[in-house]
Amino acid sequence: MASHMPANYAEDRLHRYLAHWTRDSSNVSKLDVAAITWASEEERRERQRKYCQVGSDYYDLVTPLYEQGWGQQFHYTPITPGLSIRESMTAYEKTFAGLARLEKDMRILDLGCGIGGPARTIASTIGCKIVGITNNAWHVERGTVLTREAGLDSLVTLLQGDFLKLPFPDESFDAAYSVESLCYAPNPADVYREIKRVLKPGSPFTFHDFAMTENFDEGIPDHQDMAFRSSPAPWFFGPAGDIWWAWKMPGWPDFWKVFKMWDPFRGCAHVIYRLMILLGMCPPEVSTLMDTMWYCTKSVAIGGRMGIFTPMYVFVCRKPGAGEE
């Protein structure tokens, strides 16, 4: 089995990504909170212009860490009673396939497929053919290996490309979906135009993505926040490091995963990394990486606890059929 760590996983990946988020690219050994939180309009436009490179550099850096610490499915999920986080993700992917109107023998496009975790679940459950697209070369390489090992290479194909410039002919897919990926587009409307182009008339498109919740109206049936399905544990207990919920699950299947997000563990880990940096055992950028990932996961958990953010906003759409507006 191929390692989840690329052969060239090294300091240059840290420098390439962290340089996007600092005003002093010669020094990425300290988290530049001002550049991240109070970015100027010019800085934001520059990052949007380089969206493909920023996204690819990010996933070059974190994909091995995600797979090692979270699994092959890079998304949040409502927690199903009695199931672990991983089992809940698989169960949710099957539910999502139903919401997305995905059926056997369809040719389906997965936008922002990562290493193909959801695509493998859906394809093996339904018997459909899925083409996943990602802008990251390592996603394709690693995901193709995992797909072959799962015996699903006849159903799932992963390709490198830009979802703003899809490399497919018009009306070539029966359905399309995305899971926590369109939020990275500089202008989602551009992605929607491309999706409409490659879908056959009348075909469904469904996305599950990050969203703020101020305008969510529970009375509108077309709007679905799947976070409300999480029970009894809140969906954010993992990134929040809430070991109480992890401890309640029989067999403790999520305990170590959640323990690594726990504040006291993070504090100890920070001291250890600082000591390793002092002794020359790892580069200073590693501390910046840990701080960055901690900043992200804690922000997600805080937003979920406050009820102002959801990573599971689901919208089911359909390309107009022939003769429809």
Rank of each mutant, 00 (worst) to 15 (best):
A7D: 12
N8D: 15
Y9S: 02
E11T: 01
Y17S: 08
S25K: 14
N27D: 15
K30Q: 14
A35E: 07
T37R: 14
Q48W: 01
G55Y: 06
G55I: 06
Q68L: 11
G71C: 01
Q72R: 13
Y76P: 00
S84E: 02
K94L: 15
K94D: 02
I108P: 03
G117P: 05
S124H: 03
T125S: 10
I126H: 02
G127C: 07
G127R: 03
G132Q: 14
N135L: 13
N136L: 06
H139F: 10
E141S: 11
R142H: 12
A150N: 05
D153N: 08
S154D: 12
Q160T: 14
L166I: 10
A176Q: 01
A176V: 07
Y177K: 02
V179Q: 12
L199Y: 04
T206E: 11
M212E: 14
P221R: 02
A227E: 04
R229M: 13
F236E: 13
G238F: 01
G238N: 08
D242P: 00
A246P: 03
W247G: 00
K248F: 03
M249C: 00
W256Q: 05
W256F: 06
V258R: 03
F265Q: 04
R266Q: 13
I272R: 09
G280H: 04
C282H: 04
V286H: 00
L289I: 00
S299G: 12
S299Y: 03
V300Y: 12
K319S: 06
